[in-house]
Every structure is written in structure tokens, then in C-alpha cells.
Design a protein around this nucleic acid. Sequence first.
DNA 1: TATACCACAGAAACCGGTTACTGTCAATAC
DNA 2: GTATTGACAGTAACCGGTTTCTGTGGTATA
Lengths: 363, 363
Amino acid sequence: MQKKLTINDIARMAQVSKATVSRVLNRHASVDPVLRERVMDIVQEHNFVPNVTATELANGRTRLIGVLAPPLNWPAIPEIMHGVSEYIETTPYEVVLYSMNLERNHSDVLDRILAMRMVSGLLAILPGGLSSHLDTFFQQGLPLVMIDDQKEPTHIPWVGIDNFSSAYEATNYLLQLGHRRIAHIMGPRHYYCALQRLEGYQQALLEAGIPLEPDLLLQGEFEPASGRRCAEMLFAQDRGTWPSAIFVGNDQMAYGVLEVAEERKIQVPEAVSIIGFDDNLLSAHMRPPLTTMHQPFMEMGYQATKLLLNMIDPEHVHKPEQKWQAFSSSLPDTTKNDHSSRIQIPTHLVTRTSSGAFHPRLL
Amino acid sequence: MQKKLTINDIARMAQVSKATVSRVLNRHASVDPVLRERVMDIVQEHNFVPNVTATELANGRTRLIGVLAPPLNWPAIPEIMHGVSEYIETTPYEVVLYSMNLERNHSDVLDRILAMRMVSGLLAILPGGLSSHLDTFFQQGLPLVMIDDQKEPTHIPWVGIDNFSSAYEATNYLLQLGHRRIAHIMGPRHYYCALQRLEGYQQALLEAGIPLEPDLLLQGEFEPASGRRCAEMLFAQDRGTWPSAIFVGNDQMAYGVLEVAEERKIQVPEAVSIIGFDDNLLSAHMRPPLTTMHQPFMEMGYQATKLLLNMIDPEHVHKPEQKWQAFSSSLPDTTKNDHSSRIQIPTHLVTRTSSGAFHPRLL
DNA sequence: TATACCACAGAAACCGGTTACTGTCAATAC
DNA sequence: GTATTGACAGTAACCGGTTTCTGTGGTATA
């Protein structure tokens, strides 16, 4: 790449000091309009763009935000990232992607990342085991937002959904279809969202006057294989004990359940209704298409990024450097607590063919 | 965040000059082992990590590579990005994600990005219309790798597949199943890959002694709606003129074709065999599951990143700063031209239920 | 006309590193 | 015993900007 122009080159060409060039570029008021014009002409003529690194060093802050994410081929992550990108595009910031693979404890990596002072803020997507570590950084003043963490609520700014209400709504939907024996395949108990969903499920049953039946509660790992395993347990006994509907803790596990049903020729939804949670991209294409609770992942990414940037510099919203037009969010009023640091985004039920009215079963 | 330690602080504490501290940190040989030890102790005691920005400014290069990608919710992009992350993790580099949305011509944005000198190299995923613009940068010395660009081959380092051979293989597969009337729904003609796939298809037919029939060649836009449109045209006429198999230019269009078949109660594969191209994640879950030509997207991301980093600094491979273990690529010998700057990665056919042997049709 | 003030631009310090150059001291050569 | 050399650490320049401080000239005020 050809040698890059520096502010000194511009200064020389314009016959002014580099200080003046800097002031012109940063739109300081204290520059004579005539001079400003002359300098700007030269800047534009040569397509001069100041070196970011130098600017960042001088300013003591970067225009980078770190995004800590699970592997991008996980479900939902691309959608979240899409929302992140949509918002970032309206700002002068860029995203540094830290993709963490698997269970390895990345806290040392995290330490270095943050110690280097490369990013001015961090967006942590499903931080999982890292969240307590992140807490430390937040205490120390690092601008930080979590998306859908799976621990207890903390004071850390957070964007996610109301798992309790969503699960409550999902279960109620099955109740309204006439189901009474409703099983639940929950996620791992160490995930806060799994517990919340369980509670929503239980609350709905209790309100309907249906006693909780331990046999109808199983625990999986939030991935298809465990869904299979649980489904096999549910269908292992004699047909009279089967549930007529299953509320599965997430879509991934529901896929496993659907597979078992297909293998065993158990009709869905005629013999058993199945409802998932998440609305992953695949869910609309299952056999049969999966009824599920939709999580607005893209919106979550968008809102989380917005929140983070407001923490980093509250002014940026109105700066002229805005790269492009603002994203026309279709959900201006749906985000409760717009000014709080915990944003809950509404979910909604997507009814597809995997769920249907209860039919008394022919034994 | 608490005030960060600088190299000066360390120098003061160790009673040496900052130059010495710098030399210790960069493992220069010309430091007395005893002194080195003393400095390192202090560095470790305080968890000192040098400020990246300052380092980058002094060195005149950053440890960032830019990844120019379509929106992450596009098919295949997450898989490619996953491969990118896998490789990046083995290096001291990080990824800056430039997600470009839609058709907007981003060349001005690109100009600024590169003028700022923020990234030391660029990985362009499906650059499309931007590729000629990128060419200019490459000429000027910017380390650049393209993944699966859709223009004519250039001298720009590139990672992709052999579209001609893959299409040839796909078509041959249908021929071997006994099909003779094989339609092709191609992608837009301005995509080089679409042309290559067309040629592969034609070549296979010609070699089988089957004349090309213009009615059996349609053109779509690489997305589902156009697949629907083309399918409707194919099935518009009297049943005798239908193809017994359709080679669809990509999976997205094949989804549209499957929809039309389902609506019209045309049995797949009994009445018509369908084969796609790409093997997107959804394809295994179609009704029926789609036979398709698998593109190893993750491997493409991995190889492209490797190629790019070798261009940027050929030494990095053996540096001790390697963040983690090397990625154990399962395909060490499958990449032809390992030292060239055009890497073709092998595809393979994935046979699922949407394709089957030719049955003479009952009229 | 002298003084105060203001507008504006340049000089220089600074951000936090790296590195060319310089200087010191001890070991080796003559 | 002096000259030469080499090992090593410190000084200072440098990367390319931003910003504080200083200085100049013009205008308003007394």
C-alpha cells in the first residue's frame, strides 16, 4: 500500500500547523472559516483520512466494541449478530468479534483482551460460565451489556426476555387447547432461564387446578440428543400414561422429540401436541412445523448494542458522524424500561402444526 | 475502569528505563537475564499488559483483520464465519466484522475503512458488486482474500469451489439414476458461479448424448421466490413435458421448488427428483430432505483466513504468541494448490430423499 | 492614544509504546 | 598498560494524531 498521508503532509501543503489541521478535521469553532475552507479543500483533494490508531492513542479510547459470542453456527447467534450489526452501522463504532468455542474457560483470554484496552465496551452474548468473571470487570467500570445470560439477574445491564411469562403463556395455550396431561422437558437447572420457564409452566398448571405430576417433568441439556432421550422416557410406559402435550424447554430439544415421535409413528399433533421455545430458523421447517415461543433475537442484539453505546458515550446518538441512516426499528414502544439497564423484549407465540386441540385418545 | 499501568510505571518500579521494559516484553536477546527476571516479576505481579493502541501506532500495523460479510442471517455466512473464528483463535489477530447490508454500494465505506489503516488485511465474503473496487485495493498492496466471489477469476487470492465440476457431478448423478429429461434452474447470469454450474450441467448432458432443451433451462435469482416461479413454469404445461428431475442452482431456490411440488401434490422424488446446491443447514430438514451438493463453508472460512494471515505475516504461524492450540483440520490434503493463492476446496454430493431413480410416468 | 480583550494560529507537550543511537564498563587483544 | 571490542542499558527520536499553552494582531473601550 502506498505511503499514507499524515496530518503533517496536509499541514505543509496548506501552509498551516498540524494543530490547525486537527482542529479543522474535528470541527473546532475556533478556526477562521476561510482557513478552514482552504484546509478542507486540500483534505478532500487528497482524500485524507486520519490514522485511527493515532487518533485512538491521543484520545485514549477506541471506537471498537467487543462482542463475546458463542460459535456463530449456534442457533440464534447469527440473528443476534445481525441485530448488532444493524445498530452498529448507525454509529461510528465497529465490532470486534470474539468467538469463544466451547467449554474452555476463556477468562484468561478475556483478561488480556480487556487489559489491552482495545475495546471501549463489551457485549456478552450468552456468557454462561463467564458471567461472574464479567461481573468483576463491570464493577471496575467496563461498559458491559449481557444478552440473555443464564444466571441470576444481576445489576449488570441486560437484554433478554421474560422467561417466566413466556413459559406461562405457552403452557396456557396448551391448556386452552384442552390438554390436561402436559409434560415439560426443561433445560439444565443451572440455567436461570430453564428454571424460570419451569416456574411459568408450573404456575399455569396450578392456576388451572392441575396437580404437578413428577413423571411429566424431565430435564435435558438444551440440545436435540437430550430431547430424544426425554421423549423416549415419556413414551416408554404404557400408552395411557402418555402426556397429550409436551412443552419443550427449547426448540433444539423439541427437534429430538419430533424425531422420536416420527420414528414411533406417534402422530403430531393428533396424538401429542408439541411446543418449543425460541423459534429458531429451523423450527418452521420441521415435520411438522413446530409451534414455539418466538424470541426476537435480532431485536435483542439491536437493543443491547444501543444500550451499550449509550453507556459508552451518551452523545453519540446525535453526532454528525453517524455513518448511515438510523435503523427504522419497528418496535419503538415494545421495549419496556427504555432507560433502565434491564431491557425485556416481548416474545410471542407462533402457532404452527405441531400443536392442536386435545383429542381423547383411543386406547 | 481504574487507571491503567503504563510501561513507564513498570520502568519506575523496576528502576530501569522504559526501553528496557519494552525489550523485556518483546523478548529481545540483549537484556541481561537477571534484569529480565526482575522486570518480568514486576510485570507479572501487576498483570501489566501493554496498551495495544500505542503498540500498534509504534509498530505501524494492527493485529486486526477486517471481514467484509453479507448480513449474518444469510445462509452459509455463519458457517464461514465459524471457520474464520476457528483459525483466528490460533493467531494473535482479531476480527473486525464489517457487515454490509443489502445492495447499498458500500464502496465509500470501504474507502474510509481502508484509509484509516485500521486493519492489516481484508477477507471479503461474497463481495459481489464490490469485487472490482476491492481489486483496486489489492493492486495497491492490501492483503486481501475473497471467498466465493461471483465474478470472473482474477489474480486476487481466492477460496472457493469448482462450480463446473460440482454441477457436472450433480447432473451425472441424476443421469445415473436414469433421468433423461433433466431441467436446470440456474442463478443470475451475472454470477460467475451460476454460469459455471450451467456449463457443468450442459457438459454432463452432452456427454450423455442428450440434446439441450431450451425449455428445460430457467433462470432464477438464487432465492426461494424465484425458485417457485421457475417451478411453476416447468409444471405449467401438460404433464408429458415435465422434467423427471430438476437440478436447481442453489438450495434456496430448491426450497421454492419443493413448495410448489407440495402444493401441486407432485410427489418428490417419485414424480420428480430434485437436487440443490450448497447444502445449507435447512436442507436436511426440508420435506422431503433435499439432495444437494455440499459446499464446505466452514472449511472455506478457515482456509481463507489462513491464507490471508500468511499473506500478512508469513512468520506468525510459529510465533509463541499463538493464542491456543492449532485447529486440527481434518482435511490436510484435500486442498489443492496449498501454496497458491487460489484454493479450491472439494465439494461432495449429499444424497437425501428428494432424489430417486427414474420411474416411467403413467400419463 | 493607551489598555483590555478577543479571535485565532502556532509551538510544544502529550498519549504509550518501539527502536536507532549513544554511552558505559568490563573483557579481550596487542 | 593501552586499544579494541562487545554486551548491555539509557537517551531521545519517532509513530500520527490531540490539546494546552502561548503569542500575535485587531477591535472595542476608556
